[in-house]
């Protein structure tokens, strides 16, 4: 059992406050590009589609498996550890996540893993629409959660995830 951020995109209003508070908390500036959570927001024929994407902390994580230098590892609480000495910021991990839940920090050339803000995830605190909430993973269902996100993206006709190729 470990915590993760559960996403119910149906109530997301697309305000992107989660991106801002994530970057403000971790990097001390407002930069949606330097946030562990990204909101895919698309205007389409008069309607607005919104989907926040954030690491779902899969047990068998495609990102960890794909890392060519072994720089990506799992913490006990399910979070990612990034060995900065070995990370080459090649982006293969981000591309490997089927839903594109992993962010790449273009400025610092690094992966941004969700660390749940030391127990008080800012994005959850600020989410007025209650589409983000902290939940407990059973330890087995991570891939299923990612598959759900992929399905939502596909239903919208959006290319499967991948911040590297940028749905965002």
């Amino acid at each position: 059992m470990y915590p993760f951020i559960a996403v119910d995109h149906r109530s997301c209003t697309g305000c992107k406050t989660c991106e801002l508070v994530c970057s403000l908390y971790h990097f001390g500036e407002c930069d949606p590009g330097r946030s562990a959570i990204r909101v895919i927001r698309r205007e389409k024929k008069g309607l607005i589609f919104c989907l926040p994407l954030v690491c779902q902390r899969c047990e068998e994580a495609a990102c960890i498996e794909a890392c060519p230098t072994g720089a990506l590892m799992r913490r006990e609480d399910g979070g990612l550890i990034i060995d900065e000495d070995n990370c080459t910021a090649c982006g293969i991990c981000a591309e490997a996540c089927p839903a594109g839940c992993l962010s790449l920090d273009a400025a610092a050339k690094a992966v941004i893993g969700c660390d749940l803000c030391d127990g008080e995830p800012q994005c959850v605190l600020f989410c007025h629409a209650r589409c983000l909430r902290e939940a407990e993973s059973s330890g087995e269902d991570g891939k299923q959660r990612v598959a759900c996100l992929v399905e939502i993206l596909e239903q919208e006709g959006l290319p499967g995830g991948l911040p590297g190729r940028r749905v965002q």
Partner: peptide, 9 residues
């Protein structure tokens, strides 16, 4: 659906 502007609660 309810939607809104940037940074609006």
């Amino acid at each position: 659906k309810r939607v809104g502007c940037f940074a609006c609660p």
